[in-house]
């Protein structure tokens, strides 16, 4: 203000009679209120949506998990704070539960390894074909999840070429099979969720300034060391979001286990589905759903904390 005093008539800010100043304050406040209203208006649809389709179902899910087990569809279900449901459900179904987490975890690791290499190649090596290759990665999504999973039944079938080759190489016994095994389930999961891993990884890698990698080689890092000291840490945000986007749906998925597995590969998703429908024990399904949700959220929190990515995310 003082610097312009010579050229522009300036009103002393301390002067109570100064025109303009109070108006200006009112204006700021008014525009602040207006901005606040706009923010609420913009948020309203999402809030409404969440209330309708998340909060209410979530509440009824909790309620269902605490129903009195002696109820039935005919007699109706009664909310009874039956926490024992959780213990019973866990005792009966801990195996599919653990299997879900294990399948999801293994599939995520496979996706991370394959996806990282793929995303790295797309970001750094494809040059002007980058967009095309990215489209190819996403292209399978244009067909249905179910169809893609079913086609793996053909690929892994006992008389398919994959089994033939593995038998020929003695990697599989002559009567060994792939379909209806753990391997098939994990393979299906890894295949179906790979793009969820590749896309965030690509976004992270593509953002890396190539000059940083040059700087690392100028500072005595061979390509391998440069990768671990610069590229990998800078791609961590992609690794974290990619693993979360893969693990969370993969751990809850049961289509792959149903289509590519057998009764010994039953996952918790299948149990929940069966308990809600045919078995008519919504309290078991509810308790398992809640447990799964709590376990996954807990694992995610620990993971994000460990990765120290508050600022990366």
């Amino acid at each position: 203000m003082t610097s312009t005093a010579g050229t522009v008539p300036v009103v002393d800010p301390g002067d109570p009679g100064a025109p303009g100043e109070p108006d200006a304050l009112v204006d700021v406040a008014a525009s602040g209120r207006r901005r606040g209203r706009t923010a609420y208006l913009l948020m309203a649809p999402a809030v409404l949506w969440l209330a309708l389709f998340f909060v209410i179902p979530f509440y009824s899910l909790i309620a269902a998990s605490l129903y009195d087990p002696s109820g039935s569809d005919e007699d109706g279900w009664r909310m009874a704070y039956a926490f024992g449901n959780y213990v019973d459900a866990w005792q009966d179904y801990w195996q599919p539960f653990v299997r879900s987490i294990a399948y999801g975890g293994i599939a995520t690791v496979i996706c991370l390894v394959l996806g990282y290499v793929l995303a790295y190649a797309i970001a750094f090596k494809t040059g002007r074909w980058k967009t095309l290759v990215l489209v190819l990665v996403i292209a399978p999504f244009f067909t249905s999840f179910l169809v893609r999973t079913l086609s793996w039944q053909l690929i892994l079938a006992d008389d398919g070429w994959v089994v033939d080759v593995l038998r020929f190489l003695q990697l599989l016994d002559d009567d060994g099979r792939l379909l209806a095994t753990d391997v098939a389930v994990v393979t299906g999961l890894a295949y179906n969720f790979l793009p969820f891993m590749v896309l965030p990884l690509f976004a992270s890698l593509d953002k890396i300034d190539h000059r940083l990698i040059e700087a690392s080689s100028d500072l005595y890092s061979n390509p391998v060391v440069g990768f671990f000291k610069v590229t990998w840490p800078l791609s961590l945000p992609g690794v974290v979001s990619g693993t979360l986007l893969t693990f969370i749906p993969a751990a809850g998925d049961y289509i792959n286990a149903q289509l590519l597995g057998n009764t010994n590969t039953r996952v918790v998703g299948s149990v929940i589905e069966a308990q809600f429908t045919d078995a008519n024990q919504p309290y078991v399904a509810g308790a398992l759903s809640m447990t799964l949700m709590v376990v996954i959220v807990g694992m995610v929190l620990v993971y994000v904390r460990r990765a120290g990515t508050e600022e990366l995310l």
Binding site: D209, R211, L212, E214, A215, S216, L219, V230
Partner: peptide, 13 residues
């Protein structure tokens, strides 16, 4: 040989 780059290229992490 070491370089001071035109844009610095400091490691942000």
């Amino acid at each position: 040989v070491n370089t001071v780059f035109q844009n610095y290229a400091l490691f942000p992490h």
